[in-house]
Amino acid sequence: MYKFVLFCAFIVLVGSYPQHFATKKFKVGIEYDGSLPMKGGSDRYRHRNNYDPFFVTVTTSSKSGFVISYVEVTATTDIDGDVQFNLIRGETGSRSLVFQLVSNQSEFLSYSYLVYGIKEEEYKKVTQVSLINSLPTL
């Protein structure tokens, strides 16, 4: 009976051990006044081997008549895990972005993202004004 009680206490102790998570936030692009949320998503993946790098590639695009101004990404791993953000293709003012999250030394990777956009005409106005202001004066 004593062994059974000890075993149950061990199970309760292990089961109640708090899990600690590491969350990193990434923001790429330029936040303009009037930027609107375009598209978002989230997912969770489990690693097969904690020590092999794990890659998640996400392709996103803006709505018709809009361009992407910036993207916000939140990635969560266990406390010992590491996650890196790589922008593969696209930039501020493009209609699509491809980004990649690389996770290592973690049992899982959970992420969410939200893409913000601005009307294409507004973006052209903003870039024209910034180009005029950056010209050297004689």
Rank of each mutant, 00 (worst) to 15 (best):
G34E: 05
G34I: 01
G34Y: 11
S35G: 06
S35Q: 11
L36T: 10
L36M: 15
L36S: 04
L36V: 13
P37R: 04
P37L: 10
M38V: 11
K39W: 14
K39T: 11
K39N: 15
K39M: 14
G40D: 11
G41P: 03
S42C: 13
S42K: 15
R44W: 13
Y45E: 14
Y45G: 02
Y45S: 08
Y45W: 09
R46T: 13
R46W: 15
H47N: 03
H47A: 15
R48N: 12
R48W: 14
Y51G: 07
Y51A: 03
Y51H: 13
D52W: 14
D52A: 14
P53G: 09
P53W: 06
P53V: 04
F54L: 14
F55C: 00
F55M: 12
V56T: 05
V56P: 07
T57W: 07
T57M: 03
T59E: 15
T60L: 06
T60K: 05
T60P: 02
S61R: 11
S62F: 10
S62K: 03
K63E: 15
S64F: 10
S64C: 05
G65K: 01
F66K: 04
V67R: 09
V67N: 01
V67G: 01
I68V: 14
I68D: 07
I68S: 09
I68L: 08
S69P: 02
Y70W: 03
Y70F: 15
V73E: 11
V73C: 10
T74Y: 03
T74H: 00
A75V: 02
T76Q: 11
D78W: 06
D78R: 06
